[in-house]
Computed example of a mutant assay.
Amino acid sequence: MTEQHLLTQRTARYYTLGTASEQITDLWIVCHGYGQLARYFLRHFAPLDNGRTLIVAPEALSRFYLDGFSGRVGATWMTKEDRLAEIEDQATYLNLLLQTQLQQLPASVRVTILGFSQGGATVSRWLASGAAPVHRLILWAASFPEDIDFSSGKAAFEHLPVVIVYGTQDEFITSESLKKKQQLMNELGIQPQVYTFEGGHTLHSETLLLVDKTL
């Protein structure tokens, strides 16, 4: 038995808050976590919708029923199955999305990439290719994946402001996992700004606004 691949075209879905115009100074690309859908995830970013910011939430290409064979649907960026092909597809998708948005915006627009939970690993792998013009990276309840390509990834994150945000009651974050994340970032030469808030595995409006103002 021989495994083979066929490159095909498919439709990707994304949602926006704000309208592309010459008045836009900031573009945010925000990637949801495991089992979420982009239209619901985007609601957390309503506090940033100020007429000068365009927020774009792409949806992962793989969807599934969250419980059994019907009912609520979620999306996932990847699984362990055929992961290298999925990583490449993600980068192609996100690069095209970013380019499409930038074509409609002033050349001076500032680009912020935010990845929440599984979306954090997704945007880290994407940016490691060095192809995306990004001004700041926010990893929310997330961190760089341990399998990131250090040979190319290191240069991609040089001089890129990185922020880590997590809730102090996040059940997925332990002192041991925080230590591992810090070691990995040290290897990449990254000294992130760290923000915490009282809460669990979720976004937090006040902290989101604080991060936006101080970066």
Rank of each mutant, 00 (worst) to 15 (best):
T2N: 14
H5Y: 14
R13A: 11
G18I: 07
S21I: 04
Q23P: 00
I24K: 04
T25N: 08
I29H: 04
I29F: 10
G33P: 06
Q36P: 15
Q36C: 10
L37G: 05
A38T: 10
L42P: 15
R43I: 03
H44I: 00
L48Q: 01
G51F: 02
T53M: 13
L54H: 08
P58T: 05
R63C: 12
F64W: 08
F64R: 08
F69V: 10
A75Y: 15
W77D: 03
W77L: 00
E81D: 12
E81K: 15
R83E: 10
A85Y: 13
I87A: 09
E88I: 07
L94A: 00
L96I: 00
L96K: 14
L105M: 02
L105C: 01
G115V: 02
F116H: 03
F116K: 00
S117C: 15
T122D: 01
W126Q: 15
A128D: 10
G130T: 08
A131C: 10
P133C: 11
V134S: 10
R136V: 08
R136C: 13
I138Y: 02
A141M: 04
A141C: 13
A142Y: 03
S143A: 15
D147M: 12
D149Q: 04
F150A: 14
S152D: 11
S152Q: 15
G153F: 15
L160R: 14
Y166R: 01
G167V: 01
T168K: 15
T168W: 10
D170T: 03
E171L: 06
I173Y: 02
S177D: 10
L178I: 05
K179I: 04
L184R: 09
L188P: 06
G189E: 09
P192W: 14
P192A: 12
V194I: 13
E198P: 04
E198R: 14
G200K: 11
H204A: 00
E206A: 05
T207I: 04
V211I: 08
D212H: 15
D212K: 07
K213Y: 02
